[in-house]
């Protein structure tokens, strides 16, 4: 396939996965900020949301302080924010349109319809200060549905060849990055000095972390006990059955890269790098991770993941 086609397909997936993550992140933070002030976190919630979404660098160019209204508007609708949800959907659609022929009709029509529908939300939520909460919930549902349906159409309608593999690869790489970013921003909350006390502030923070990667219910199924910070870290990093955990994402990354390598009859740098990252995760235990520093571990992972994304681009996408 054309290198540019692979690049576009891969980025459609990345943008839609990012949009989905941002929607969950906003939802989770909304719950936190709706808590009575006695439960308020030490860390400013809206600043941490900006950091987790990677928008903290550009945000101060447009606003003096971060508050619920302007952060949500910036993350959800602001065209000036390169990674706002509206831009993610817009870019996904632009990439999709550039490679229409590589998508199935269902995938294309779905993403094009979503892009048309996006405009109806923009009209209502264009103002950066006044967010209509009900409209926002509707919007976030729409975003999650957009990403899920795209995934679903891909799964149900695409030929199983390199086009499909690159599409899935984009989802896994982006998803790993998103989970790692949440961990990176919230890691202090997971450190051992925060002993769990029923109904503590931290309980709500931990459950918010789980919600932002839609793992709250999964947590209970896996651990069958109240929320403990080391379990939260374990679930998001090392649990293979948790679809957004780093190890699970890397199971997928290796799988799709191997599929690509097998189809082309050649394995190279990307496959080697991906396997090395996966091995590192498989060899780790949560105890060691906490001992050697959660922050350092997650930081190292983000760097590795970006390095692999660079190798994939170099090897396949730039032609």
């Amino acid at each position: 396939m054309l290198a540019r086609t692979a690049d576009n397909i891969y980025w459609v997936s990345r943008y839609l996965e990012r949009a989905d993550f941002l929607a969950r992140l906003i939802e989770a933070s909304n719950r936190i900020s709706a808590l009575p002030t006695a439960y308020a976190a030490k860390q400013d919630e809206w600043t941490s949301v900006l950091i987790a979404s990677g928008a903290d660098e550009t945000f101060p160019e447009h606003f003096d302080v971060a508050n619920e209204g302007n952060v949500i508007a910036y993350l959800a609708f602001d065209p000036r924010n390169a990674s706002s949800i509206r831009n993610c959907i817009e870019f996904a659609r632009t990439n999709a349109r550039a490679v229409r022929t590589a998508l199935t009709v269902e995938m294309w029509e779905h993403i094009n319809s979503a892009w048309i529908k996006l405009k109806s939300f923009e009209g209502r939520n264009g103002e950066p200060t006044a967010i209509d909460r009900e409209a926002l919930i509707g919007f976030l549902d729409f975003v999650k549905e957009t990403s899920s349906l795209y995934d679903g159409f891909a799964y149900r309608t695409m030929l199983r060849n390199d086009v499909y593999y690159f599409s899935r690869l984009g989802v896994s790489i982006e998803r790993a990055d998103n989970t790692a970013r949440v961990l990176d921003v919230k890691y202090q909350l997971l450190l051992p000095e925060h002993e769990p006390l029923g109904g503590s502030v931290d309980f709500f923070q931990w459950s918010a972390i789980l919600r932002s990667v839609s793992a709250l219910t999964a947590y209970h199924w896996v651990y069958r006990e109240s929320i403990k910070p080391w379990n939260v870290a374990d679930l998001l990093i090392l649990r293979p059955e948790m679809p957004r955990s780093l190890i699970s994402c890397y199971g997928e990354v290796v799988r799709w890269l191997d599929a690509i390598g097998n189809q082309y009859g050649r394995h190279g740098d990307p496959q080697r790098q991906a396997r090395a990252i996966k091995r590192k995760l498989e060899g780790a235990s949560i105890k060691e991770i906490f001992q050697s520093g959660l922050h350092e571990f997650v930081d190292g992972f983000i760097t590795d993941n970006n390095g692999l994304a660079g190798a994939i681009a170099e090897h396949y996408l730039l032609g």
């Binding site: 690509i260 082309y264 050649r266 996408l317 032609g319």
Partner: peptide, 15 residues
């Protein structure tokens, strides 16, 4: 997406 080498046209693919 295209390049010409020795009067032959090629397209850049993932392979």
């Amino acid at each position: 997406d295209l390049t010409v080498r020795d009067d032959v046209v090629y397209m850049r693919t993932t392979e």
